[in-house]
Amino acid sequence: MKILVPIKRVVDYNVKVRVKADNSGIELANVKMSVNPFDEIAIEEAVRLKEAGKATEVIAVSIGPEKAQEQLRTAMAIGADRAILVQTDAPIDLGGVEPLAVAKTLKALVDKESPDLVIMGKQSIDDDSNQTGQMLSALLGWAQGTFASKLELGDGNLKVTREVDGGLETLELKTPAIITTDLRLNEPRYAKLPDIMKAKKKELEVLAAEDLGVDYTPRLSIVKVEEPPTRQGGGKVADVDELIDKLKNEAKVLS
């Protein structure tokens, strides 16, 4: 069984981002970039399936600038066998390559590689759209198991447990299928130095976005990007009695 794992290069989750002075987007110069955390969970899950003897090959793919090779190397250090980068200089966070275009690009890669399963993050922490996996499954006519916290592979089908607003829902999906990962699916490992060294020698194919015939012209134009209104906090109370007094008499949120 072959597993395709799409990953995205995003601003590291620990970075406090800043809006550009001209309100055109987010300042990305000299900011630490990483693999989108949900995608790291996806790689880990695919690698575990390979280690358990259920998958034969794990292919990490990404769409982005030349530097996204770094994130693909990370995926290969965790255990992906090879990688494909669809290179583009268009922005990948806002006002550039949008989820629908990403889904179309991934469909072209699925047609090329014929995987049995695609595991990907449920959302990227930059644009926060939460669309690409669902869109890819629609374009392929496959089943979708979104926000997964547990996967059980059977013969020709799979069971996925999903984190939904009311609790945990379990679905059975026909394969091939798309899985999008939620936080509790697994805890990704830290790549060890020998694995990082080994990853440098693994195959990394670079394709031009144009070669896949997908149009990256955005459907959504960015009118402006602004800082959210800042919240005036920092007030302190000395003890529980003062807190109760403030909530009742100043904020009037308790009676």
């Binding site: 987010i26 806002l94 959504l220 960015i222 009118v223 990007v225 800082e227």
Partner: peptide
Amino acid sequence: RPVYAGNAVATVKSSD
């Protein structure tokens, strides 16, 4: 719409 965990708000115009 909020983006980047609500650290920015993007105003977007759709052509669909």
